[in-house]
Simulated assay, not measured.
Amino acid sequence: MASIAREWEGETAFVLAGGASVKDLDLSPLKGRRVIAINSAVLAWPDADILFFADARWWSDPPHGWKADIGSFKGRVVTTSGGGPQGVTRLMKVDPSNGIALNPAQLALARTSVTGAINLTVHLGCRRDVLLGVDGKNGDGGRRHHHGAAYPWPFVKGSFDLHQAEFQAVAPSIARAGVDVVNANPDSAIDVWPKMRFEEAIAMLEPAL
């Protein structure tokens, strides 16, 4: 297994998840900033520093198996899956019920890859995370995602409640690690962290590189 060095010490990371709210955002302010894209959210921001996935099905299953497309992504691929491509940064998945993993060879997550991505920012040394697409609910018309990629798996009733519970379980340990988290969707059903508009989150940061 690999491990993660503190390459982003003191920086802000944007964790780009798949929630439908991102569809209405102008993401251009992300240019020059640290971005971790989860699964097919990378379609919305292909310049992400890191592509993170935890489920090998996302990599291999039709109708949108990514193994044919990964060559177009120029950043680093990190996963807790035993499947997927060779030559990526592969970390060990651990139970998040006791908080995030402090071992840089591990990531805590169970029901949502967002937890693992946040844990990754802790290992990288970030001091703040801005969450995008962490909606905790479907969008208008039942829309599940902003990126348009087809998913081969049906929606599981109660998933958002499980996500909320997982975030509540890890939030204290994230704070103890010195990472502030904000959810850049004022309408998010996830109420674990402070919420604000994306534009407000950008305005409170230092200029992009």
Results as ranks from 00 to 15, higher is better:
Gly178Glu: 12
Val78His: 08
Pro207Arg: 08
Arg111Gly: 00
Gly148Met: 09
Arg176Leu: 12
Ala108Arg: 06
His147Asp: 15
Glu166Tyr: 06
Ala48Glu: 04
Ala44Phe: 08
Arg6Glu: 13
Arg143Thr: 15
Gly19Cys: 10
Phe167Leu: 15
Ala203Ser: 14
Ile36Val: 13
Leu120Met: 10
Met204His: 02
Arg111Gln: 12
Pro194Arg: 09
His163Trp: 15
Gly139Phe: 06
Val22Ser: 04
Asp191Ala: 15
Lys23Ile: 02
His146Ile: 03
Lys31Asp: 05
Leu102Tyr: 10
Ala101Tyr: 03
Ala110Leu: 15
Arg128Asn: 12
Val156Phe: 15
Pro62Trp: 10
Val15Ala: 01
Ser188Lys: 05
Ser113Pro: 04
Leu209Asn: 12
Glu166Met: 02
Pro207Asp: 00
Lys67Glu: 14
Asp55Phe: 12
Asn183Ser: 05
Val114Phe: 01
Ser72Glu: 09
Pro152Trp: 05
Ala189Pro: 00
Ser72Gln: 09
Thr121Phe: 02
Gln106Trp: 04
Asp140Gly: 10
Asp129Lys: 04
Asp129Gly: 13
Ala175Gln: 10
Gly125Arg: 10
Gly139Thr: 06
Arg90Val: 03
Leu120Val: 07
Arg127Gly: 12
Pro46Glu: 11
Leu124Asp: 03
Ser113Ile: 06
Trp153Tyr: 14
Arg90Trp: 07
Gly83Asp: 10
Thr79Gly: 03
Thr89Ser: 06
Leu109Gly: 00
Trp66Ile: 02
Ala189Ile: 03
Ala177Thr: 07
Val15Phe: 01
Asp135His: 09
Glu166Ala: 11
Leu120His: 11
Lys195Phe: 03
Leu107Arg: 02
Ser113Gly: 14
Ala150Phe: 07
Pro172Trp: 09
Gly83Tyr: 08
Val130Asp: 11
Trp45Lys: 11
Gly10Cys: 09
Asn185Tyr: 06
Val181Trp: 04
Val179Ser: 02
Asp140Thr: 05
Asp47Cys: 05
Glu206Phe: 14
Asp24Cys: 00
Trp193Asn: 13
Gly82Asp: 15
His146Lys: 08
Ser72Asp: 13
Ala41Cys: 04
Val15Lys: 00
Ser188Val: 05
